[in-house]
Amino acid sequence: MTDHPAPTAAVLIIGDEILSGRTQDVNLNAIARFLTPLGIDLMEARTVGDRQDQIVAALNALRSAHDHVFTTGGIGPTHDDITADAVGAAFGVAVSEHPEALAILERRYGPGEFTAARRRMARIPEGGSLIANPVTDAPGFQIGNVFVMAGVPRIMEAMLQDVAPRLAAGAVVHSRAIRVVGVGESAIADVLRAAAEGRPDLSFGSYPFGFGGDQTVGTQLVIRGRDSRKVDAAEHDLSQELRSLGIDIAVT
């Protein structure tokens, strides 16, 4: 989509509760929306359970392939919160109580409330730096190009505010959408293919909507690229081509 490769990112979602269907993940969408205005391309996402060997294997694959890796889940106080240990194993470093994390948690909990379980949340792989948690104080952490965050969506999104300044950002991706009404995507597949082949530096997507009943059937076409002038020109030319075929459109 550009002559200058953008920074890339991946997400590793951790937790048996996600794989079992008991909990629906929304963090992937939040991270994708967070990265878009930073010009960072989210290229891959994986979900693994609370098993250290799976976490280590996935994390090592992702961190070697992408500029940034975000993990969510598994840093709480219970026995199945094993992400810190798995990240330590992936990096080949010990995991121990981080003095600053310990101090944060000691301030958070009153006398008699700072239990052994809560103390586990101060364990950070050696060499890691803390990620602030303005919701419950229990910090996440960064080690290398890996950002380890909570699985609770509200907490994870709050942590992203401390993560943003640390990221290598790229040029912002611009997008234009063309809403084609009353026409399915198969009817405009050839037109869209020709547009994409004519502008290989841009991304062209097709997303059908409205199925069955009295719903309006149509297709949403999305053009994305880092040069806004090229995106605008592509939108103009594709709109003109569709109109010449007698197709009703709306540009958004």
Rank of each mutant, 00 (worst) to 15 (best):
V69I: 04
Q161L: 13
P111L: 03
L242R: 00
D53K: 12
P111D: 08
G213V: 15
E100Y: 02
I75R: 01
R22Y: 08
R243F: 07
N133C: 11
V87P: 06
D232Y: 07
I40Y: 02
F91P: 01
A45W: 05
T23Q: 08
G182W: 06
D53L: 12
T136L: 13
M156R: 01
E17S: 07
V95Q: 09
L160A: 07
R224F: 12
R119S: 08
V222R: 10
I249M: 02
L35W: 03
S129M: 11
R243W: 04
H174V: 13
Q215D: 12
I75T: 01
G205Q: 04
S244N: 08
E185C: 09
S175H: 06
G74T: 05
R63V: 07
D3E: 11
E113C: 09
T36Q: 15
P208D: 12
V191E: 11
V69L: 00
A116Q: 10
M159D: 08
E241K: 12
V95I: 12
S206Y: 13
V183F: 00
E235L: 10
A116Y: 08
I82N: 01
P208L: 14
R120W: 06
R229C: 14
P125H: 01
E17V: 10
S175I: 14
G210P: 12
I82G: 02
V181G: 05
D50G: 09
V217P: 08
G21H: 04
V181C: 10
T23V: 15
R226P: 11
N145Q: 03
S239F: 00
F34I: 05
A233T: 10
E185I: 08
I13S: 13
G210V: 14
S129G: 07
R119F: 04
A10N: 05
D237R: 15
S244Y: 02
E197D: 15
A90G: 08
R123Q: 12
P99H: 01
V181W: 08
R63P: 02
A150C: 04
A90T: 13
T252L: 08
N145R: 03
L59P: 00
V152T: 07
A168I: 14
V172W: 05
M149S: 03
G184D: 09
L35C: 04
Q142S: 09
D50K: 06
P37N: 02
Q142V: 14
P208R: 12
A45H: 09
I247Q: 01
D53M: 09
S203M: 11
F114L: 09
H66Q: 07
K230C: 09
N27S: 03
G21E: 06
L19F: 03
L102W: 11
L202I: 15
A94D: 15
G112F: 05
D16E: 11
R224C: 11
R118E: 01
H68W: 00
T78P: 06
A103F: 01
A32R: 10
H79L: 08
R108I: 14
Q24E: 11
N133W: 01
